[in-house]
Write a protein that binds this DNA or RNA. Structure first.
Length: 166
DNA sequence: GCCAACGTTGGC
DNA sequence: GCCAACGTTGGC
């Protein structure tokens, strides 16, 4: 399966993940999103890293699911923003996976996603959608990665004649 | 279990 | 900051 995971770049951006290499996706406090992580995600699956609530919302890169779901430590921290008084170590409520950096590319703006008829059914583009983790179909994944993501041109490899140049 | 009130998300 | 849309809470 493929995924899309939202993050506010002020909080944690694709650049942060590129720097860290790997990170825990803690702080999800929505049952549907939690269930996706806990019940559906598999190690090795790929996800779009989406920047939300920012001047330029859109897909900023790709990450990989790097662990199975485990209890989200932030629910136990009474001083933290993500504390949940109802959670106990014996009965955790919230779970998170680790993700690792795969790729960053020039931002694919939300407007560009909306402009593509091929993505009309994409969950994140549906009216009123607020889920921070959503499945992406293989067709959607292929379209975005092959048609919308622009990557640096491959380095031209010098041919045999190149070094003949004086 | 219903549902009104309230809180949050997130684009604009 | 606005506001539509949706999730959660809590009284009944």
């Amino acid at each position: 399966m493929y995924w899309l995971m939202k993050s506010e770049p002020d909080e944690y951006s694709i650049d942060d993940l590129a720097r860290d290499g790997r990170s825990s996706w803690f702080g999800v406090r929505n049952y549907q999103a939690r269930n996706f992580m806990r019940d559906q995600m598999r190690v090795g699956e790929l996800a779009f890293f989406y920047h939300s609530s920012c001047p330029e919302p859109g897909i900023a890169g790709i990450c990989r699911i790097a662990s199975v779901a485990k209890p989200d430590e932030s629910q136990f921290d009474p001083k933290g923003d993500y504390f949940d008084p109802k959670a106990t170590r014996e009965r955790p409520i919230w779970f998170c996976v680790d993700v690792e950096f795969v790729e960053r590319f020039p931002l694919i703006p939300l407007a560009a996603l909306r402009a593509a008829p091929e993505l009309a059914e994409m969950t994140i583009l549906k009216r009123g959608n607020r889920l921070s983790i959503t499945p992406v179909t293989e067709a959607e994944w292929r379209f975005v990665t092959s048609r919308l993501a622009t990557r640096p041109a491959p380095q031209p490899t010098p041919g045999p004649q190149a070094k003949a140049q004086g």
